[in-house]
Nucleic acid binder design. Structure first.
Lengths: 263, 263
DNA sequence: CGCCACGGGATTGGATACAGTTTTGTGCGC
DNA sequence: GCGCACAAAACTGTATCCAATCCCGTGGCG
């Protein structure tokens, strides 16, 4: 009943799931779809406007459209995907207002959180941040753009985690993901990930227990990222591009070819 | 297609919801399910732990479980219902940590927003807030507890709207709804909606253009609400109570009776 | 040459069918 | 009576099916 592609997709998935609650690794669920799309957005492998065709995504994960649609419902709820009736889902394209709003919201929240972290961070927290900075540097050294983008986003997530409010941390992850979309939609020519040393400066301020300074640096940092965008111009790629340059990690590209080997 | 029960349910609120994008086609969608559950939570008509059975809710809205389930996916994404595999959905019960987090988050965001409103609110905005206060008073006068609860929650939503950041406003609506659940889970004996005059004091400060004072009042206001809760005791109704005392406004109670007259 | 009507293919919208799991109910042995 | 084993019922999880809608190419017509 399922295509060969489907079974291929869940290569290692033949375990029976006797323990339902613990990591039932076998089968993809709506949550899987949600998480993987978020991951792909945050790594800039999915760009605003990309059409998400239920059938193809379902085939990729080896599940039916029912599951995919539940994932879409979650993604739409998080503001990451736009659903229009009878016309399917596409990755959201934050407009100018929304872009400003998300940066404004992040500045409000993150300046406060980074201050709290500067007040309360322990050795372990600092070490974690330092380790993360090293990973960023490594990616920068390798000129691995996609990995760098992912890591610079993660820096903010880690800060929110350390601050200890799980709810705000979850909200911030959402905001960060929208930020990715805003950047992709409005970036000027160059890539403009986070400016190189600003994260390090923030960690320095945290380590020196200077909450006010850390907050200021965070504010400036986010303002810099926003300033690098070109909000005036209408968002680029108003029609899809269909993930033209995405790596082979996600199936949403190559329109006409893939259905070949099925029968 | 809708049952008579449906019309009875929104007895008081008879305004047509002519929301922008929504086709006024009578048919319910996942969004309908989501919105109505949120509404019911915010009006304290649904309480933490209430079991949401797909089939019954689908029958109520006249749709299949497919749609209900998509609504549940959105509700779970918003943290308002908890899904456990093979055991269905129930209204979330914020634990102590989550309750503290949501109040902390709201204080952080709302003190800032109310300050901005005090800085920038125009006559129209003030009038809107005053009109809302009158509605609160009216409900208080009528001793209409459910309506009062709904309105006091709405006050914060209106402030967020006036502040102008749509994203933060949406997040706050989520937070407010979680707050409802936290209050229901942890309230001491009495009802403890918002203390009576604190909203009015906040509006006064806004009207006098005193952002700092407005922020302080907002902080104290939220702290008062939190202080009224009894977080030490484990959330009441650790297993459901199954909405034992809920009014007839929502179909999720009365297990054996309701399916009778249909044919 | 451009515009509109039309039709076929692609895709979504949603109900339903069926399998699997949990919960509830019941009778039996102690 | 009190558990306990087992069967029935209730409910969830997911795939599949059919209808509705959209997209887009094609041909007729002005």
């Amino acid at each position: 009943m399922t295509l060969s592609k489907a079974t291929a997709a869940r290569s290692a998935g033949n375990r029976r799931k006797k323990r339902p609650n613990v990591r039932s690794r076998g089968r993809a669920t709506a949550e899987t779809v949600f998480a993987r799309v978020v991951e792909a957005i945050r790594a800039h492998r999915l760009i605003p406007g990309t059409r998400l065709v239920e059938e193809r995504i379902g085939a990729y994960f080896g599940v039916s459209r029912t599951i995919v649609r539940q994932g879409f419902a979650k993604l739409a709820q998080a503001g990451l995907v736009e659903l229009s009736r009878n016309r399917g889902a596409r990755i959201a394209t934050p407009d100018e207002k929304r872009t400003r709003d998300v940066f404004d919201a992040r500045i409000l929240i993150e300046t406060e959180l980074v201050g709290r972290v500067a007040d309360s961070a322990g050795k372990v927290d600092i070490a974690r941040l330092r380790a993360h900075l090293r990973r960023e540097d490594a990616a920068r050294g390798r000129a691995d753009r996609l990995d760098l983008v992912r890591l610079t986003g993660e820096f903010h997530t880690i800060l929110a985690e350390i601050a200890g409010n799980a709810m705000l941390a979850a909200t911030l992850v959402e905001y960060e993901t929208v930020t990715c979309l805003a950047i992709l939609a409005h970036a000027r020519g160059g890539d403009s990930a986070c400016p190189p040393d600003e994260h390090a400066a923030i960690v320095d301020a945290i380590e020196r227990r200077e909450p006010r300074r850390a907050a200021t640096l965070m504010r400036r940092h986010l303002e810099h990222v926003l300033a690098d965008l070109d909000l005036a111009r209408a968002a680029r790629a108003p029609e899809p591009l269909e993930a033209a340059l995405a790596p082979a990690a996600f199936p949403v590209h190559r329109r006409r070819q893939t259905a070949r080997s099925s029968r």
